[in-house]
Every structure is written in structure tokens, then in C-alpha cells.
Design a protein around this nucleic acid. Structure first.
Lengths: 193, 193
DNA sequence: AGTATAAACTAACACCCGTAGTTTGGCAAG
DNA sequence: CTTGCCAAACTACGGGTGTTAGTTTATACT
């Protein structure tokens, strides 16, 4: 018994992501991944080119998942409500899939069109959500960078155990979101709902 | 020729940090480290317990360096001026020592008293800088977490090449700092210089 | 001068990623 | 139903890594 075990590039990426979620601190090893798939290590090379390529594939998978979640969170909402929903959706992603979130955080290679596409999708969602605030072009870039920095920084520190004090993390995150909304609505007072 | 080459735990940590700064994306290898020190790999084990322990040592070194820089930046300043100086000192640290900054970002082990001590030193500096704004105890925690999240998130994304748009990064960072200051001074209007 | 100690070494093991070449199962055409 | 092709699994192996054990040797202290 052996050949035709039914591996797929997608199934490999998926179980690798699950393994990373179970213990985000350990670094991925093809040997353990093959073990969990009931297969010998070299068999993986029928579906992936290298460990590094697999890591990139996981990053793409994570970026797409994140884009999906952010997009869903913004459906049917606008203004501050949409902003809050998107911020919390990002945090939920990092909390629910810590290993995948960490793996997604890689420097994109120059020719990585797929990863860049996913990153661009996220960028477009944020631009759409910020539209009602009618910022100037330059301000919009600053605002998007600020949003990403705040949310990403918070969840990264939270995930790394960087927040030791016994104060509720949800409250702190809401404080951060409020800070952002105050800044982005400081010009316009037309923020809805 | 050989014995008494003059290794030290500190010298090992230092050259390891330098190597990481030269290429923050590569992962540290004892073999290459030994090569750069003019020594065989096992010789390192006379000074360190394991690769993981060395990584922790580097993290401690980075945290102390960061605490020093933040402390220096805050000397002789107060209020908004101190806040701005500390934020930029953090960013300078991440820009000047990218590998060390990345290595510092590890989940602290429970019994890591030295790393926790360095983290506590940073916490105290931030508390001192926030003193003049007279926040409530809970608000102060939120404000500290927000500051760390914003600055850390920005430099992490910047370092990872996450900001693609052709807009000045310094301006974006200043926008972020302004956002924070607006929030933290929203109660008190007594902010100085 | 002589000895103890600790810092370097060599040798060896286990584990990892990755390649080469071999076996084998399933699908498609005759 | 048979036959042949192809791709997915395999075994075997090489080069690299972290780590341990045991050996040599330079330095520091008596």
C-alpha cells in the first residue's frame, strides 16, 4: 500500500497552517509535516519546490484569508462602524490563527505577484472603508499605514506575550481603535452611525 | 595555535547581533557564527548552553539597548517633546539595528527574569514620560499599550517591506505620533512645549 | 616549577532539507 | 479487458546543522 495517497498543494499548505497554529513559536519542518500527512518527506517535493516556497505559499494563503475576513467584516457597513468592524476582524484573525498570522508576516519577494495581489486586495478594502472620511490622497496613505501599524502592532505584541499588566486586552484594543477614529474624523464631523 | 582565543559570552552575543543586522532575514547559525569568530562550532558551547539560549541572550541584549536609547531620549525632556523623542528613538533603533530589533521580538519564557527586567525598565520609562498627562491608572495602561503597539507595528511593517506606496515614511510616522499625542492630550490641555 | 582549570579542539550522532533514481498505482486509449 | 503512460509515492544518499563526549593545551595560581 502506498502510492496515490492523495496529497495536494492545498492540503499540504492547509495542514502546515494548522500545525503552525497549534504552536506558533516552533519553526515548520518538512519531516514533521510529512509525518502528519502519513507520507515520507521526499514525497512532498512532488507538490512543492522547497521549504521556502512552501512558506511563501502559506503566507499567500494567510494573506488571502485575511483579505476575505476584512472584506466580509466591511460588507453592509460604512464609516466608523466599518472601521471598527475591520479592526476587530483583523484582531480575530490573529487570535484565532496565530501561527498563520505569524507566517503571513514575511518580507515579500520582488517577483511575488500572488502575495502582492493579496496585499493589494487588503489595501483596496482599507481604502474603500476610509472613503467616507474624505481624506486627501496623501492623508489617506498616512491613515492606512497608521491603521495597519496600530492593529498589527497590537496583535503582534499580544501574541508575543508582550502585555504583562493585568488589564483587559479587549479594552486596550478598543482604546486603540478609538484613538484612530478620533484622528481620522478630526477633519470631518459627518461620520455616520 | 589555538586555545585561549578569548571568546566571551558578550563577544559572541555582540558579533551574532552584528551578523543579524547585516541580513535580518536569514536565521542565525552557530556554524557561521563560529566561522566569523575564528573558532570551531563546539567551542561556542563553552560559553553558551544552546542556540536557543543564545537567541534569548540576544533578545536580552536588544531589550537593554532599547531601554538605554529610550531612556537617553527622554533625558531633559517632558510632555509632548519627550513623547516624540521616545517614539523616534524607538524607530531609530529598529532602523539602525534591524536584526537586533527583530531578534528582540520573542515570546519571553516564564522564568526569564533578565528579559522581564529589561522589559520592566522600558515600561518604567514610558510611565515616567506619560506622567505629566495625568491619566487614570487604567488609562495609563491603555495608553502605554497603544504607544507600544503603534510604534512597534509601524517599524515592523516598515522593516518587512509592508509599505509599498511611494509616500514618505518619516511623514507617515510623524502622522502616527501626532495621532497618539492628540489622544493622550485630549483630556489635559496643559501639555508643554 | 608544577598543577588545576577552563577554553579550545577532534570525533561522532541525530536530525534536517534536498536530489537521484526506482517502484507502483490509476487513468486513458486501443 | 488489456496495455502503456505518467505522476505520485518510495528508498538511498549527500551536505549541512545543532549537540554531546572525550581529548589536548594554554594560562593562572600556588
Amino acid at each position: 500500500m502506498s502510492p496515490r495517497r492523495g496529497l495536494t498543494r492545498e492540503s499540504i499548505v492547509k495542514t502546515a497552517s494548522d500545525l503552525l497554529d497549534q504552536d506558533p513559536s516552533r519553526d515548520l519542518t518538512l519531516a514533521e509535516l510529512a509525518r502528519h500527512l502519513g507520507v515520507r518527506t521526499p514525497s512532498l517535493y512532488n507538490h512543492i519546490g522547497s521549504l521556502d516556497e512552501l512558506r511563501q505559499e502559506i503566507a499567500i494563503y494567510g494573506a488571502r484569508e485575511l483579505a476575505d475576513r476584512l472584506g466580509s467584516a466591511a460588507i453592509g457597513r460604512s464609516g466608523e462602524t466599518a472601521l471598527v468592524a475591520v479592526a476587530w476582524a483583523y484582531r480575530d484573525f490573529a487570535v484565532n490563527r496565530p501561527g498563520l498570522h505569524l507566517a503571513t508576516q514575511r518580507a515579500p519577494e520582488p517577483g511575488q505577484t500572488e502575495l502582492n495581489a493579496a496585499a493589494h486586495a487588503i489595501l483596496e478594502i482599507l481604502m474603500r472603508v476610509l472613503e467616507p472620511f474624505e481624506l486627501s490622497e496623501k492623508e489617506q496613505i498616512h491613515a492606512i499605514r497608521a491603521l495597519r501599524a496600530m492593529v498589527h502592532g497590537f496583535v503582534s505584541l499580544e501574541q508575543a506575550g508582550g502585555f504583562g499588566m493585568p488589564v483587559d486586552l479587549d479594552e486596550s484594543f478598543q482604546y486603540l481603535v478609538d484613538t484612530y477614529i478620533a484622528q481620522v474624523t478630526s477633519g470631518t464631523r459627518s461620520a455616520l452611525s
